[in-house]
Amino acid sequence: MTGLRVRHRSTVALDGVDLAFGPGVHGLLGPNGAGKTSLIRVLATVTGPADGRVEILGEDLGDHRRRGEVRRRLGYLPQEFGYYPGFTVREFVAYVAWLKEMPAADAPAAVERAVARVGLADRIDVKIKTLSGGMVRRVGIAQAVVNDPRVLLLDEPTAGLDPEQRMEFRALLRELGRDAAVIVSTHLVEDVAAACTGVTLLDGGRVAYRGTPSSLAALGGTTGEGADGGGSDDLGDNPIERGYTAALRAHRASTARVAVR
């Protein structure tokens, strides 16, 4: 994406964002209102940019005729995804496979594989309305991966998952990231530290930091010191949390200096 701008009425959600993603697991971090969900929704072709250029898998999203092709090759889990409570897990994931125009002969096996990957093989013929919130979230992940997407977009995917399920999900992310570009929007920096190969920090609709989880953690120091060498007890409980806060503060200080000039 180049010069990506997104507006919601009078509010600028993304302001001139330049980013590129390849295979691997990429974490999107940032405070509420930073632009994470807006970015995910543009990549999922749910909303269009006000300005700039976005290309996915060689297709320019500015060409409306090509968006359908992109959607068939994407996987997408929104922060709050809609489903039919009366469907079984199998029926719902199969329905999404049909929407993605997967070959009818391949879909049944793909559905079973996707459901097994999220640990719900024993619930595949259970109605979704009987599942717990964490299990419903896992159904959402299953529908996102049923077509073995080349680009996988996940918005707060671990919401509602217990610690064991989150560990299993991180392992799944690492597996998926071997061949696909997996972009995960989350507030949980520990998920980024455990599963991601790259991290992008957004703040106020702009890129505040880009690097690896280890380089972000390095900004937080290892002995309670921040990037400036001062005490950092107020920055977080571990290096990556402290690095996250230090990067945000550095970006905001830089933005304030530019504004003053």
Rank of each mutant, 00 (worst) to 15 (best):
residue 136 V to I: 12
residue 61 L to Y: 00
residue 189 V to W: 11
residue 100 K to Q: 03
residue 149 P to H: 05
residue 134 G to T: 08
residue 149 P to Y: 01
residue 261 R to N: 12
residue 110 A to K: 09
residue 67 R to D: 00
residue 8 H to W: 15
residue 173 L to A: 05
residue 104 A to Y: 14
residue 67 R to H: 04
residue 75 G to L: 01
residue 191 D to I: 10
residue 85 P to E: 14
residue 26 H to C: 12
residue 49 P to A: 15
residue 154 L to C: 04
residue 245 T to N: 14
residue 191 D to T: 06
residue 48 G to A: 14
residue 79 Q to K: 02
residue 12 V to G: 07
residue 26 H to M: 09
residue 68 G to Y: 05
residue 234 D to P: 11
residue 165 Q to L: 05
residue 244 Y to F: 15
residue 38 S to K: 06
residue 118 V to M: 03
residue 124 I to L: 06
residue 166 R to K: 11
residue 83 Y to C: 07
residue 229 G to T: 07
residue 253 A to F: 04
residue 230 G to H: 14
residue 162 D to C: 09
residue 52 G to A: 10
residue 122 D to I: 05
residue 25 V to R: 09
residue 1 M to V: 09
residue 80 E to N: 12
residue 188 L to N: 13
residue 50 A to S: 15
residue 78 P to L: 03
residue 230 G to W: 10
residue 100 K to T: 06
residue 146 V to C: 00
residue 243 G to I: 12
residue 183 I to D: 09
residue 144 A to C: 01
residue 1 M to K: 12
residue 134 G to L: 08
residue 70 V to R: 02
residue 235 L to R: 11
residue 115 V to E: 03
residue 248 L to V: 09
residue 238 N to L: 09
residue 65 R to M: 06
residue 117 R to I: 05
residue 197 T to A: 05
residue 126 V to N: 01
residue 243 G to L: 03
residue 181 A to G: 00
residue 6 V to N: 05
residue 257 R to F: 13
residue 157 P to Y: 02
residue 174 R to I: 08
